[in-house]
Structure formats: structure tokens, C-alpha cells
């Protein structure tokens, strides 16, 4: 009788131990995966999301991956073309310098606005800030990791 009781105890504990062995291996894999993801440099520096665009070009809701220098304006040679009657041909530029984003008005006729106030010269830009050019509104967003 004793041998049987001990055998059953061993089997019960073995089952529970194997459940935790599985969890241990999985959690180790998950942690390794998260560490690898943290080391991986993000390819994108940021994104620009169109929150309002009455003309439909760019489309509201569209989102653009940003290079270190991104130009905005009505001219087709800009990185992001704004088909808006109040936008100048070369309206503004977004630049990534060191660790932060800056917006610069390139002498536009109707001005560039950040969160409602007009920009003159170079102005720092935080993630979540909203840029307005003519009727087009764009928000700077962190790249997804």
C-alpha cells in the first residue's frame, strides 16, 4: 500500500512540475524575445498622421513614415504633397536633429502653426503635437516598436 501511495504522489508532483517546466521554458523564450526587440533599433524616426484634410490629398487618416528631413508643400517635389489652396509651394520642413524633431517654416505665405500658435523660424516639436498648414492638420507620432 505504501509503495502505491508514494508512486501516486510522485506522479502527481511530476505532472505539476512538468506544467511549470513548460511555463519556465516559455517565459525564458518570451523574455529573450522582448530583449531582442528592445535591442533592435527602430527603423523609423517618427510618423506623421493626417487628422484633417478637406481636399482629400493627403487623405485624412493617412500616415507617413518620416525621414530625417521631410519637406511639406504644394509642389509635387515635396516629401509630403499638400493639395491645399492656402499651402505654399515649399511650405515647411520637418527635421530630426540629434534626439528631437523640429519644424521650420520655409517662408510660406500663410504661415505654419503648431498646436494653434504660429511658428517663426525653427521650433521644437514633441510627439503628439499638431501641425497646421492651410486647412491640413498633421500630428507627429512615435514610430511603433
Amino acid at each position: 500500500m505504501d509503495a502505491a501511495v508514494i508512486a501516486i504522489w510522485v506522479l502527481r508532483l511530476l505532472f505539476l512540475a512538468l506544467l511549470y517546466a513548460f511555463l519556465w521554458v516559455v517565459v525564458r523564450a518570451l523574455v529573450r524575445d522582448l530583449r531582442a526587440a528592445a535591442r533592435e533599433p527602430t527603423a523609423e524616426l517618427g510618423r506623421l498622421v493626417v487628422t484633417a484634410s478637406p481636399s482629400g490629398e493627403p487623405a485624412a487618416g493617412a500616415s507617413f513614415a518620416l525621414d530625417a528631413i521631410t519637406s511639406l508643400g504644394r509642389d509635387v517635389n515635396n516629401s509630403i504633397v499638400l493639395d491645399d489652396e492656402f499651402a505654399s509651394a515649399t511650405h515647411a520642413a520637418l527635421t530630426y536633429r540629434g534626439r528631437a524633431w523640429y519644424v521650420e517654416d520655409l517662408g510660406s505665405t500663410n504661415g505654419t502653426f503648431v498646436n494653434g500658435s504660429q511658428v517663426d523660424g525653427l521650433s521644437p516639436l514633441a510627439f503628439g503635437d499638431e501641425i497646421q498648414i492651410g486647412h491640413v492638420r498633421l500630428r507627429l507620432e512615435r514610430a511603433r516598436g
Binding site: A4, A7, I8, L11, R12, L14, L19, A21, F22, A29
Partner: peptide, 29 residues
């Protein structure tokens, strides 16, 4: 990784099943 984890799953399930079978045998006896 999937293969290793599936082997763990198989061992755990077989151990659980033997534990159940042994308990039943002892109870029947």
C-alpha cells in the same frame, strides 16, 4: 522552439494521464 515546447506538452500530458490511471487502479483495488 515550437518542437521543444510540444515535447514538453507531450511529456506533461502523458505524466498527467499516468497519474490519473494509477489513482484509478489504486481506488479500484
Amino acid at each position: 522552439r515550437e518542437l521543444t515546447l510540444l515535447l514538453f506538452v507531450a511529456f506533461a500530458l502523458v505524466a498527467g494521464d499516468i497519474s490519473l490511471g494509477a489513482t484509478r487502479l489504486v481506488q479500484a483495488a
